[in-house]
Design a protein around this nucleic acid. Sequence first.
DNA 1: CTTGACCTTACCCTAAGGGGAAAGGCTAAA
DNA 2: TTTAGCCTTTCCCCTTAGGGTAAGGTCAAG
Lengths: 129, 129
Amino acid sequence: MLSISQAAKETGLSIKSIRHYETIGLIAAPPRGDNDYRYYPQALLKQLHFIKSARDAGFNLKESRALLQLCENEKRSSADVKAIAEQKIAELQARIEQQQALLNKLKKVTRQCHGDDTPDCPIIDALAN
Amino acid sequence: MLSISQAAKETGLSIKSIRHYETIGLIAAPPRGDNDYRYYPQALLKQLHFIKSARDAGFNLKESRALLQLCENEKRSSADVKAIAEQKIAELQARIEQQQALLNKLKKVTRQCHGDDTPDCPIIDALAN
DNA sequence: CTTGACCTTACCCTAAGGGGAAAGGCTAAA
DNA sequence: TTTAGCCTTTCCCCTTAGGGTAAGGTCAAG
């Protein structure tokens, strides 16, 4: 049974995050000691680890919740998991493309800018139209 | 002198955004009519256009504010503008690379998943460790 | 005169926590 | 025994960039 700071160290999450996950019902409330401190059993630590991995993989908390439920469900269909992953892949791809387009435009106009002490600036010009 | 909805239509911003920019001091408060309605003169419309362009180019409001101030300042140095743009370029590049890395990992593990009605799932396995 | 479209302020909501206050708990050293 | 120095708790405000909605005032057309 780890204290919350030990659980944080062990999982790589922050104390704030762990309490937050409890608040929003992402994990169950851990048992409390006589001092009212939270103490985390193995089962909860495993869930916290899972959530940390899901977050690191780019899933938001809503998606992490769905994945965790699938993880806990021994009768899951891998198709359901794959659907979530593929949706995230599509989302990431779209975001990357959009940002890449922005980046290209920004790089192009920035190359035109002399970057000296005169006010003449193609970047400003581009934004002012 | 356009009303706020006309200004919104003209600039492509939302009414909420325009009022928000005023609230945070990004633009000056427009003159009001006897009815207390906001009426936007050309100078403000130009600023709103500029902000819209900056936002579309990927700059956040803080950066847009700095750019707008440079835009208004006839004694600006284009080097100052270029510095902001290059910082944004670096930021975008870093974000894109990080997301691309996530995407690659996610695609790789997702390809391993059969996506059928059995619980066996490499995606879950990857997250559970 | 009424109706619908427009405007105003004010408040709460988003995601995912971070920061910090105020209060209480635990252990080791003086 | 007391103090110091961490640990924990709850509570509340803060972040981005507005969106949604309510309650109430205004304007123009039929």
